[in-house]
Design a protein around this nucleic acid. Structure first.
Lengths: 153, 153
DNA sequence: TCAAAATGACATGTATAATGTCATTATGAA
DNA sequence: TTCATAATGACATTATACATGTCATTTTGA
């Protein structure tokens, strides 16, 4: 019985750490962008293109789970920077595919590499075991919460 | 070497789950508020008063780490609901203390109890061990990120 | 006593989106 | 081939959740 309550409380604490965690993470990303002319949302576009290859705006929107209209703005901004270019899309003649330019690829990969170095520092005295466990728990919890959102009443 | 990279990547994944996790959690809270006339921010005020007892607006703001001007708005809204009342503040004659009314206490405690039940369902097939580990990891990571935000370059 | 700080109130600004709408294709089924 | 339907980009509007700035009025504490 006590166990159940303890679990619930720790879970509660875990879940609500997600906000400060996110804020801290975003602050780190922003800090890593100082000096480049990138904004956080431009970085997000570059990351998607680096990670999943060239895509259309609606595809990026689907991956980011953000409405296409806003992602369009993000992408237009990024296009203007010259880090990304449009290429003809064989699958849809009106919706060009976005792709990293060489400059864009170099930049985003350097940024991500720096972020990974930060991860190494942050994880320095945590065991791989524990990180794995934490990731698993968080994935499970997020999944459950998404499911149970409506059924709480 | 591989270990270090694996760790960094899992950590990265863990950290960036914080956003969807938060969104899912907030959706659950909102779902639990349907039927009451509460908004999420009114709920936050009630929770602070329930958890830490009667307080002034600036005190609540400090706990929530939100600017007092906005917390003032949240509190005024909550006051209008009758779930909270003002009481003379012996420590500061111009800044009344906010306290839950009986109705307010009943309501927030029921809401939180329901949220805890949700936690129990969500944690049902996770071990207390693993939840503890996850919490510890997340707390550590959040702490480190806050520290290292500026030093990434 | 008196300068500095705290508080409430109000106005405005900002970032990150969602939503609505339109004209223009593009697509796919009959 | 045609034609209804869907997809896309562009633009406008609205929403949310805050931060910031400012002011008048206490309040406090040295």
């Amino acid at each position: 019985m006590y166990n159940v309550i303890m679990k619930a409380e720790q879970l509660h604490q875990l879940i609500w750490m997600s906000r400060p965690l996110m804020q801290a993470a975003e602050a780190c990303v922003e800090a890593g962008l100082v000096g480049t002319n990138l904004t956080v949302r431009m970085r997000a576009v570059l990351e998607m293109l680096d990670k999943y290859g060239e895509q259309t705006v609606p595809e990026i929107a689907a991956r980011l789970e953000i409405k296409r209209q806003y992602v369009q703005i993000m992408c237009n901004e990024t296009l203007a920077s010259g880090l990304v270019e449009q290429r003809p899309n064989p699958r849809h003649k009106r919706s060009p595919v976005l792709a990293l330019t060489d400059h864009g690829r170099t930049l985003i990969e350097e940024i991500i590499s720096n972020e990974m170095k930060l991860m190494e520092r942050v994880g320095a005295n945590l065991s791989g075991e524990n990180i794995s466990t934490a990731l698993e728990v968080v994935l499970t919890v997020a999944d459950r919460l998404k499911t149970q959102a409506g059924e709480s009443e």
